Amino acid sequence: MTTLEDPTSLVLASGSPRRRDLLTQLGLRFTVSAADIDETPLPGEPADVYVLRLAREKARTVAGRFPGAWVLAADTTVAMGAELLGKPVDPAEARDMLTRLSGRTHAVYTGVALAGRAESSMVIRTGVTFRTLSAGEIDWYVATGEPLDKAGAYGMQGKGSFLVSGIEGSPTNVIGLPLGETLELLTQAGVPLPWRAP
């Protein structure tokens, strides 16, 4: 159990530097405390159910460490039809994922959960269409190393932006946190925001 100087503080239950950067850009002040949970999908678990389950579990796990605080958690996955595409285990799997995504539209799902002083959650879906990629483009991108720690083997906020030809929905959802919808969740819970007095 951890005691914060301000018991109404916001805690981000994620070690993701992308989520941290997105919240920091908006002037939000928060503590980072990642949740260590089993992220294995259940057999036949749909993408939206999977990310919501993990986000809620992360938020509740970390909320136990910070009594009285708001705890925000998120989980993102890439889905091609009913198949979930997690982080590739090696360059060969990254190359295979990118080849399959080439020239097609897939879905990115993020579950966002708030726990502690209040509990609420949501799932956001964004459609992402890839350009038709050449083998050379895929090989070059895999060689950068960027795909290896990204769900679906790409990062739209980095070098992987050249892969994408179109987006339907929240762009920041593809990065790992749908900002507009997350801010609405925080607002409804009464979390103090930089532009609004507590």
Rank of each mutant, 00 (worst) to 15 (best):
K87D: 07
R18L: 03
V108L: 02
G103M: 14
I124W: 07
S16I: 09
L163I: 05
E137D: 15
L85G: 13
S16C: 11
P88W: 10
A153I: 01
L114E: 05
T40L: 07
M156G: 08
L4I: 08
T129Q: 14
Y154M: 00
W70V: 01
A79Q: 14
L98Q: 13
P67R: 05
G116I: 03
A151R: 08
L179I: 12
L133S: 01
T132I: 00
R104M: 12
G136A: 14
L84I: 14
P147S: 02
F66W: 06
T172S: 06
E184W: 08
A143K: 11
G145C: 03
H106A: 15
R104Q: 14
E57G: 09
P91S: 06
T110N: 13
G127S: 09
M156S: 07
G145Y: 04
W70I: 02
R196Q: 00
L26Y: 00
A82Y: 11
D36T: 06
S170Q: 04
A151C: 08
L133F: 02
R56H: 09
A107G: 09
A115H: 05
A135Q: 03
S14G: 13
F66P: 01
L133V: 03
T172V: 00
L42R: 09
V49S: 13
L12M: 03
L42Y: 02
P91N: 08
L186I: 12
T76G: 00
G111R: 04
